[in-house]
Design a binder for these strands. Structure first.
Lengths: 128, 128
DNA sequence: TGACCATATGCACATAATCGAATATATTAG
DNA sequence: CTAATATATTCGATTATGTGCATATGGTCA
């Protein structure tokens, strides 16, 4: 972006990559892999998703170049190949937070009174 | 991300937002709006998409808080409400470029010789 | 070799997303 | 009010995407 005009093919590639990130299971896998490489079995245990599901999502991430794999004995270890995904998630989190705060102001009528500065980087977290 | 553990609901919200960006028509609309606000008719003319399609995609972007609207007479002018989308697209472009360069090295064997530093910001552009 | 384990894939099904055509709504002008 | 224009929405068809189950593949070990 940033003043460029992208052709249709490039735009489709970008969209495809966004779609790749547009699934909660895949996001969970990436987040779980953030700490370091894990086997498929580890990921199944960590995420609670079915083995077939995990494996299929990993293939998608692999083809998209977001993760890489390494075989060791019977196990296959996956790891994040492109740390930019976390940057993307952070930006989206910020975008979401800003959006929700705008929504709140719309409804309740500027109760917080923080003015314009939104509390940066507290995102959501906290398990529910 | 960045060391946080996001709950399922948050993860679903993030995924949903990525999906919102996962359509080439919507990306084209956002890119077209980058220069400034435009009416629906303008966007239809600029993108070549059907009026109903443009209108529907705009509603999705609107509900997601990525664009905002302003009515003036019979026309409705849309503009980008969250500039982060362009940042996201830039990061994805970089990710794509890196991925494709890795693919190239895999196949042809390091012909470019750029080493690690990818040429920043040249993306793709050039209409096809 | 065959038993066994981890991972990947194929298939049927359900659901979500997109599109095109038609139509509804909103706004202005007469 | 009606006519005209811009935008939004509905409907049906089509396609993409995700899931669960079963099974295939690839590797280790006896």
């Amino acid at each position: 972006m940033s003043g460029n005009v992208l052709n249709d093919k490039t735009l489709e590639l970008i969209a495809e990559r966004f779609r790749l990130l547009g699934d909660p299971v895949r996001l969970r896998l990436l987040q779980t892999l953030e700490a370091g490489e894990l086997s498929v079995a580890d990921l199944v245990a960590a995420t609670g998703a079915a083995q077939a599901s995990v494996s299929k999502h990993l293939q998608l991430l692999l083809r998209g170049g977001l993760v890489q794999r390494r075989r060791q004995g019977m196990f296959v270890y996956y790891s994040v190949a492109d740390g930019r995904v976390f940057e993307l998630c952070d930006v989206v989190c910020g975008s979401l937070t800003a959006y929700l705060e705008r929504e709140l102001e719309q409804l309740g009528g500027h109760a917080g009174g923080d003015g314009e500065g939104r509390t940066p980087g507290h995102h959501d977290q906290g398990n529910g």
